[in-house]
Design a binder for these strands. Structure first.
Length: 325
DNA sequence: CGCGAAGA
DNA sequence: TCTTCGCGG
């Protein structure tokens, strides 16, 4: 039940960071945060990110390590947080929860067997974005003056909406949902080493001779986070069928297939619950307050975050100078 | 999610 | 050639 199928259809091209200088990007915060959270858990000892009171805040290390990438390339990130979760997604969430429980059990076994590396590897898969993680991430982002947007519902939908209405230049997410939510351009691989890639909606539609609604129908046929697809129908067949029959309903009738809640899922993508919002792109972080927050209030060893804070300081000072020249 | 193996 | 399945990350 994944929509990685869309990769085979999406028009994706590499893009260099140098081309993104000055750009604003609405980041799917859940996605971005989870990525840095899991890598932090995997590569650092839990003693580093656990307070004396037993609270785990690996996110604070992750955020400090992740943000410099934006500033160093003169990109303004707007962090978009999820609001309410659609109940259509509960099946998907339940499955992920079961996966995490399995990983947690195996991690415990590895820990007891004395295999710390294997345990850390598995523990990185058990991570949940707890209330504490959400709250402390928001607080740190606020101190660093990074714009935050609270989505009414799905974060990807909100990010796509902001890109669609020109509030930002790009949506930023690792998954392909933003395409179905109508984002004209989505940046992927913003968190990994090399240059990112840019996924374009218009080029995707042109390539397959589809409308946006038809692309949504293709996605639904393949399966999304909100619905199971039709068995035997993958991306290629879905495009062919939608092209032949026109829309999802005609395809389902012709194939004698049924998709639970298909009408609701379609509405969710085409007319999502989003809000119009603005943000201040001038970022003026309070580095001292941020350092104090992370190291004093949440007891993270300064050595773990110092390099990240330095990189933020250097790049923000740099862009501050740019503004006057 | 990406990838490789296996079945259709 | 396309889809599914299962694993590692």
């Amino acid at each position: 039940m994944g929509n990685a199928d869309l990769r085979q259809l999406a028009a994706i091209e590499p893009i260099e960071f140098s081309e993104l200088a000055g750009a604003t990007v609405a980041i799917d915060a859940h996605n971005w945060l989870y990525r840095y959270l899991t890598t932090t858990v995997k590569w650092t000892s839990d003693a580093i990110y656990t307070t004396a009171a037993g609270e785990e805040v690996a996110n604070l290390v992750g955020v400090v390590q992740g943000l410099p990438k934006f500033f160093e390339h003169d990109i303004t990130p707007v962090m978009v947080f999820d609001g309410g979760v659609t109940d259509l997604k509960t099946d998907e969430i339940e499955q992920r929860r079961e996966q995490k429980e399995k990983a947690a059990k195996r991690a415990k076994e590895a820990r007891e067997a004395g295999d710390a590396v294997e345990a850390a590897r598995l523990e990185s898969r058990t991570q949940r974005l707890t209330d504490t993680i959400h709250e402390t991430t928001r607080e740190l982002l606020a101190l660093l003056d990074v714009p935050i947007v609270e989505a009414p519902a799905e974060g990807e939908a909100q990010a796509a909406h902001m890109a669609r209405t020109g509030t930002v230049d790009y949506a930023g997410s690792e998954d392909y949902d933003t395409l179905l939510f109508g984002a004209p351009r989505t940046l992927r691989d913003l968190t990994s080493k090399g240059d990112p890639e840019c996924m374009a909606l218009d080029a995707t539609l042109d390539e397959h001779d589809l409308t946006w609604e038809q692309l949504v129908d293709v996605g639904i046929l393949c399966g999304t986070d909100f619905n199971d697809g039709v068995s035997g129908i993958g991306p290629k067949t879905a495009v062919k069928l939608v092209g032949e029959h026109g829309d999802l309903w005609a395809v389902l009738e012709a194939e004698d297939a049924y998709i639970e809640n298909a009408d609701l899922v379609r509405e969710l993508f085409v007319n999502p619950d989003v809000t119009d919002t603005d943000f201040d792109p001038a970022i003026e972080p309070d580095l001292d307050a941020a350092r104090t927050y992370v190291t004093d209030e949440w007891e993270i060893p300064a050595s773990e975050v110092e390099r990240g804070f330095e990189r933020i300081q250097e790049s923000v000072v740099q862009s501050g100078l740019d503004r006057w020249t």
